[in-house]
Simulated assay, not measured.
Amino acid sequence: MQKKMEGFAGQLTSILPQAKIKFCAQHIFCKNLYITDIGYYPNAAHHERERPKGCAQYILIYCVKGRGWFSIENKSYEVKPNEFFIIPAGAAHHYGAHEKDPWSIYWLHFAGNDADFYYRLLTKTQGKAPVSAVVSTSRQLIFYDIIQHLELMNNTDNIIYSCSCAHAYLSSFQNTQIKLSANENSIIQQCITFMKQNLDKPLRLDEISAEVGLSSSHLSSLFKKQVKSSPIHLFTSLKIQKACQMLMDNSHNIKTISYSLGYEDQYHFSRVFKKIMGISPKHFKNK
């Protein structure tokens, strides 16, 4: 069976474009700790990833079900439920799901001035071996809060908020308890759900507005106030996030991806992708 880096049923991912990563690296608050990639892979059968030259960010992988493994510095470790490990930036590594009992994992890539501090804090008792994590409802809430805000990354306030949550999320592995509020806007959430269900279509503003029972002008005003972008711009961003997931799965080519996301012209899709992510789909697929 072919190994997979991406493409698991029910997965969640959010990947920051290069311009947003640059924003985080330069922002007075975000530069201390920021997330570049984050996701959840449930029942990730045949999941495997190898980076012989390492990764530019630290990688945390938290197993909540099933089993997996990872190798670093010529040593291999088994990973069991409620264990996590962190791969330091620049370290060659290889990891994957157990063949018969594949893991379900929460993962994130993080960087910044405080990244090494958190790496040393959370691994000081075990070194590079997996570390036990107490099950925490608040940790899950923080994760989904980060994902929700990064879906609205065109509003830089949401990126700054996700950076503050990154501190809380990493600290939760030291059993820190954080009380969270939902901060949900039901209309915007309805729009996002509708958009995600129709990524294969070229939705118009009037179609999105009709779904939530508002006029196009009212919905646009609401998005401008709360999201700092238009509904169509957010819809396009969600399409490109989905494209990122598909590009990391070698079973899809760029032409197929563009058609599956409602773009009849793959060259138009490539221009839109580069405008948002800062690199072409081809370069993203090969990075």
Rank of each mutant, 00 (worst) to 15 (best):
M1Q: 11
K4T: 02
M5R: 11
M5T: 12
G7A: 09
F8I: 01
I15S: 00
L16H: 03
Q18K: 15
F23V: 00
A25G: 06
I28P: 05
C30H: 05
C30W: 05
N32C: 08
T36H: 01
D37W: 11
Y40C: 03
H46T: 11
R49A: 15
R51I: 09
P52A: 02
P52H: 01
G54S: 09
A56Y: 15
Y58V: 07
Y62Q: 06
C63S: 06
R67D: 05
G68D: 04
S71P: 00
E73R: 12
K75P: 06
P81S: 04
F85K: 03
A89R: 08
H93R: 04
D101G: 05
Y106I: 00
W107E: 05
D114H: 07
L121M: 15
L122G: 02
T123V: 04
T137I: 14
S138Q: 09
Q140V: 13
Q140S: 14
L141E: 15
F143I: 05
Y144S: 07
I147W: 00
E151R: 13
N154G: 09
N155E: 00
N158S: 08
I159N: 02
I160A: 12
Y161G: 08
Y161K: 09
C163A: 03
A168M: 12
Y169Q: 06
S171K: 14
S172Y: 05
S172E: 03
N175P: 01
I178D: 10
I178F: 13
S181H: 08
N185D: 12
I187A: 08
Q189S: 14
Q190W: 04
M195V: 08
Q197G: 11
N198K: 03
L199T: 04
L199P: 02
D200L: 14
P202G: 09
A210C: 06
S216A: 11
S220M: 13
S221Y: 11
I240W: 03
Q241D: 11
S251E: 15
I254Y: 05
T256H: 05
Y259I: 10
Y259W: 06
S260D: 13
S260H: 00
K275N: 13
K275G: 07
G278C: 01
K282A: 14
K285G: 06
N286T: 10
